[in-house]
Design a protein around this nucleic acid. Structure first.
Length: 432
DNA sequence: TCTGGGGTCCTAGGACCC
DNA sequence: TCTGGGGTCCTAGGACCC
């Protein structure tokens, strides 16, 4: 059995590059994407566009993507916009437009599937592709296919991408970074010592800031040093599972298959406030906010065709501590009132002394609605009929954050998905 | 002027049942 | 009555990723 050939394809500065297609006059300029919706470009009377500059930004947003010109100033994803403004005050600031990025995402993925159908989604701007069974792919290690994929993506979107092609996902993910932007990197197993081992251990997908720090405390900085470390020592420090994985990863071994479809496990909505809010003093603000999140979540569930049996909340306090609570219901629900009630119950179990920075609502233990409402009269052997609570109970009370405006808010959204601001997700799972 | 939003997976303890 | 073990569900937190 020949070795597999797996590609990792990563779009170059994806959000920023999509924006440059829309605003070609910004090509070559430092541009950052992030923040709210209040800094969209204005069109002047003479038809020219006026862009917001980073120096004028106030708020708590972070950079989602920066153009390569902006990265030269040291600003990159995750950096607070206020901090970025200090580094690059004249950079152009654009709001994120997920609908547009999803359109381009679907275009590049469709283009890839025309050439190689085994595609694993890894978010909006990257995919893995199993090339192993494509005709002739093993003749040149996948180079011709790689060239064809890049051309197809460019043709479909006008955007460049970077591709790594190796025997597995772990190595391909590393290699797609090697020649960015517009790169194509092939790597064979025998090249691991020369090309992989000099890299910092942190570059491995799955070694984050915490693990990297603990490795450094052991004197391990590079992947090569990790590969040379005693497997038993790693297991001793990191546990059987993670320790053994660290050892395998450092040697470039990874048998994970390319998975072309997976069911979602949870759906959530969260929001960071403009200023920290207190549960009691700012109740009039918080109550409709929480209800609004529940309405949006119910809308997401309905649009995607799922119901949830475990509703959870997430709070971030002003000191950045995160607390979660969840509650498993007797039956699946997609009803905003039921979600709101469960979230309220969860909230009761939290000490709300500190001020809040973020509030979120999550729906877990998902089931497809189509599976829950299966017709009773069926030739198939009977399973116990799943229970499905669609209607809210008659006696309804908001346990916490209660405020007069909440009742009408819930009433108007009773219709369901329409009332919730739709996210227009292009990649919805089709209902069978 | 610190640090978004939407996810996945893992661990671990307690409840509960057989 | 006592002891022990296995399995599953629920909950909370944390690391990590895009």
């Amino acid at each position: 059995m020949p070795e597999r050939l797996i590609a990792h394809l990563d779009m170059d500065a994806f959000y920023a590059s999509v924006e440059l297609l829309r605003y070609p006059e910004l090509k070559g300029e430092p541009v950052v994407i992030g923040g709210g919706r209040d800094h969209a470009p204005r069109v002047l009377a003479d038809g020219t566009r006026r862009f917001a500059r980073l120096r004028h930004y106030t708020g708590r947003g972070v950079i989602t993507t920066a153009t390569y010109a902006a990265r030269a100033f040291g600003v990159n994803s995750g950096l607070g916009l206020m901090k970025a403004a200090a580094l690059a005050p004249d950079a152009v600031l654009l709001p994120v437009d997920f609908d547009e990025y999803r359109r381009y995402s679907r275009r590049f993925k469709d283009a890839v599937r025309q050439i190689a159908p085994l595609v694993e989604d890894r978010g909006i701007d990257e995919i893995y592709i199993d090339l192993s069974d494509l005709p002739g792919v093993h003749d040149d290690g996948g180079r011709a296919i790689g060239v064809a994929l890049k051309a197809a993506v460019l043709d479909a979107t006008g955007l460049t991408c970077s591709i790594g092609i190796t025997p597995n996902k772990l190595l391909s993910k590393l290699c797609s970074e090697f020649d960015k932007p517009d790169g194509l990197t092939l790597l064979r197993t025998d090249e691991i010592p020369a090309r992989i081992w000099p890299l910092p251990a942190r570059r491995i997908n799955g070694i984050g800031p915490k693990a990297a720090q603990r490795l450094e405390a052991l004197g391990i900085r590079s992947i090569g040093e990790l590969a040379a470390a005693d497997a038993a020592l790693l297991v001793g420090h990191f546990g059987a599972h993670y320790g053994a994985w660290l050892h395998e990863a450092a040697h470039g071994r990874d048998e994970r298959p390319v998975v072309t479809y997976s069911e979602p496990k949870s759906i959530s909505r969260e929001t960071t406030f403009d200023r920290d809010l207190h549960a009691v003093r700012d109740r009039a603000t918080l109550t409709p906010l929480l209800t609004g999140l529940c309405v949006e979540l119910a809308g997401d569930l309905a649009r995607k065709g799922y119901a949830s049996r475990t509703i959870g909340i997430k709070l971030r306090f002003d000191d950045f501590r995160i607390v979660t609570r969840d509650l498993t219901l007797p039956a699946h629900t997609m009803d905003a009132r039921s979600i709101r009630r469960a979230a309220g119950e969860c909230l009761k179990r939290v000490d709300l002394t500190r001020r809040l920075r973020l509030l979120g609502v999550r729906a877990g233990a998902l089931a497809k609605i189509a599976d829950l409402v299966k017709p009773v009269a069926s030739a198939a052997p009977r399973e116990p009929a799943p229970t499905f609570a669609r209607e809210p109970s008659a006696s309804y009370a908001l346990p916490l954050f209660d405020a007069p405006e909440t009742a009408p808010q819930l009433a108007t959204m009773a219709a369901g998905p329409r009332a919730a601001r739709a996210r227009n997700d292009d990649e919805e799972t089709p209902c069978p």
